[in-house]
């Protein structure tokens, strides 16, 4: 039987994501775990994230999961969500500068203060919270999701990948940022698919059926 492991590194609420994955995964086994053996056995892995990036990376290192995640590239499909996307870049400005897992070349930056909407001139609040559009670049995980669909975001930092071909989704919030990145069977999103109603559930359904090919 096919299985999906959701990495639990002790930082937050994984109820929502596990419920949403169960909702779309039929009779697949969904496990929420920090056990490297269980993660190693799963067919697909989800790396969720809430909280601060330094705590996240430290906990992964303590549990011996950092190397495991790095080694998943090209081996089995991996989905990073929110902080789980940011932690896949090389480093983040959060917590005074934090080295991350480095699966994607590039940095995570804080939204600058005094951000305004270019069209309306309206002051933009931080965190970027709510439903925003994602301009999709061709990738199998967008299958069945209309172009420019809205997803639910909550974040104050954003990823800036160096390789433009690794950016597969772009969102505007005063500036353009990468809301989805992908390479070698890894797909990572800044938004919360588990909180993004139909579009989010479709993305999760696509992931649990994905063979990891672009």
């Amino acid at each position: 039987m096919s299985s999906v492991a959701i990495i639990d590194y002790g930082m937050g609420n994984l109820h929502s994501i596990s419920k949403a994955v169960e909702h779309v995964s039929g009779d697949m086994r969904v496990v929420v775990t920090a056990d490297p053996i269980q993660i190693g056995r799963a067919n697909r892995v989800i790396f969720p994230g809430v909280g601060a990036v330094r705590d996240c990376v430290q906990e992964l290192e303590r549990l011996g999961l950092d190397e495991l995640i790095r080694n998943l590239a090209g081996i089995k499909p991996l989905l990073g969500v929110c902080l789980g996307m940011q932690a896949l870049l090389e480093s983040s400005e959060e917590n005074g500068g934090t080295a991350c897992l480095g699966l994607f070349a590039g940095q995570v930056k804080r939204f600058p203060e005094g951000l305004t909407d270019p069209a309306s001139g309206e002051r933009l609040k931080i965190p970027h919270m709510g439903w925003n559009q994602v301009r999709q670049h061709s990738h199998p995980l967008w299958e069945g999701i209309p172009q420019d669909s809205r997803f639910y975001f909550v974040h104050s930092f954003y990823a800036q990948p160096e390789q433009s071909q690794e950016c597969v989704g772009v969102t505007e919030y005063g500036l353009e940022f990468a809301s989805a990145v992908a390479r070698d069977g890894i797909f990572a999103v800044q938004f919360h698919p588990e909180k993004s109603q139909h579009a989010g559930l479709q993305l999760l359904a696509n992931f649990v059926n994905w063979d990891g090919q672009d």
Binding site: D117, L124, G130, N132, Q133, R150, E172
Partner: peptide, 8 residues
Amino acid sequence: MLAKRIIP
């Protein structure tokens, strides 16, 4: 663009 939210 970010949408304004309606919350019941």
